[in-house]
Computed example of a mutant assay.
Amino acid sequence: MIYLDYSATTPMSSYALETYNQVATDFFANSRSLHREGLESDDVLSLSRRTIAELLSVRQNEIYFTGSGSEATFLALSGLAFANQHKGKTIITTAGEHHSVHQTMSYLKDHGFHIIHVPVNEYGQVSTDSLRSVLSEDTILVSIAHANSEIGTVQDLVSLGELLQENGILFHSDCVQTFGKLPIPTHLLTSASFSAHKCYGPKGVGAAYLNSDTHWEPFFQGTTHEFGFRAGTVDVPAIAAFAAAIDEYSPLVAEDMKRLTHYRQLVLDAFQGENRIYFEGHPTNRLPFHISMRMKGIEGQLVMLECSRKGFAISTGSACRVGDSHPSNTMMSLGRSIEEAHELVRITFGRWTTEEEVYKLINNLKQLLIEIKGV
């Protein structure tokens, strides 16, 4: 099987696996224990926190480890919202956010907050003008993902962040798809969420960045783990593997993004002029390794299943939406019809994708166009 679903998850690197095994063997103690073994485990945890903080150019005490990127998103957004509700009750986001953001917004709405969706353009981008148009004196928090996992569009967090900073509004970004791959302007963010398994680390580990100058309220009252941010014994081996994975990949990422951009362009060039193929998302301001496309008149699920039958692992969109028959919120926010939304497939390259595999994919997709008759 040729794996081309790196936005859903990435395989762990050998270095991350080795790190996990070593730490689980030698530093298995609870990091909150006061005996020598516990203190050594806490040292590993601190080193891992410092590694990730330095990569993001933030302070070590601004990184909080969680069980996933989704949990990091929920705890950060809810913590900021409840702590600042005395200033206002309006929160702004987009219709194309990850499911974890929508879940959090639904929870906050049930607790008296007013949720507004800022409009996006045909590529899924939020402009400063559109964001400015929905701001009010009651707005306390904005959550806009750095990159959309379904269509690959990357937002201009700098211009959006500067606007919000000028207006004294908190700014959270889901950076799960960009962490370790693209620069993240943390100096303009109040908080951000990340996930280990999107950057060659283990599943079951995430992290949140929270600016230490901003007040937040813990969801779990009375807990002491992760400075009160999250309850539960900390998984030090997995966190160490997370830090190892990102530390290993960081020096390689610039060259790797160039390589994956080239692979993406090979696919675009192969279907130039093909009137049954549509590429979604911004053509340039996007994840370099990401292709979001539609075959006119052909269900994306059928394309995915046919590719799987022929040895290619691709996706129909966000992996967190599997089993959901509703059309993509992202696609609907772009003005696509329900039928067009259901045509979406996502192909994402990664560290171990080869050029030979990309050419095999191209040939397979061309054959599918012949075999499956669309509109």
Results as ranks from 00 to 15, higher is better:
N275C: 09
V267P: 03
F279K: 15
R259D: 01
G323M: 07
A243V: 10
A238M: 14
C320Y: 12
A240N: 03
P288N: 14
T316L: 03
P327M: 11
K296G: 04
I314T: 08
S315Y: 07
F229T: 02
D324I: 11
Q301V: 13
V322Y: 08
C307T: 08
T261G: 13
V322T: 11
M257R: 14
P237C: 06
A231I: 14
E255N: 07
S318Y: 11
Q301C: 11
R259C: 02
T316C: 13
H290C: 05
I338T: 10
D235Y: 05
I314N: 07
G297D: 07
L268M: 15
I291E: 02
T284I: 14
G232Q: 15
E226M: 09
S292M: 09
E226S: 06
P237F: 04
Y249M: 14
A238E: 10
R336N: 10
L305G: 02
F227C: 07
V234W: 07
I314C: 07
A270P: 00
C320T: 08
S315T: 13
I338F: 06
E306I: 00
F289S: 12
I338Y: 08
D235F: 00
C320I: 05
V253W: 09
G297E: 08
N285E: 12
Y278G: 11
R276Q: 09
V236K: 12
H262G: 03
D247V: 03
Y249K: 05
M304Y: 00
F227K: 15
T233V: 08
A270Y: 04
G300P: 10
R336Y: 01
T330Q: 14
I246G: 06
E226K: 13
I298A: 01
R264S: 13
Y278R: 14
I246A: 14
R309C: 03
G281R: 14
L260M: 12
R309L: 07
N329V: 00
F242M: 08
S333M: 04
H326P: 05
I291Q: 13
Q301Y: 09
L334T: 04
R321M: 11
N275P: 15
E226A: 06
D269G: 05
G228Y: 00
P237K: 02
H326N: 12
Q272R: 15
G232N: 13
L268D: 12
P327I: 06
P283L: 08
T233E: 15
G300A: 10
T316P: 03
S325Y: 08
M332H: 02
I277R: 12
A313G: 03
A245L: 01
A245Q: 00
F229L: 05
P288Q: 14
M257T: 00
E280Q: 10
S325A: 10
D324V: 10
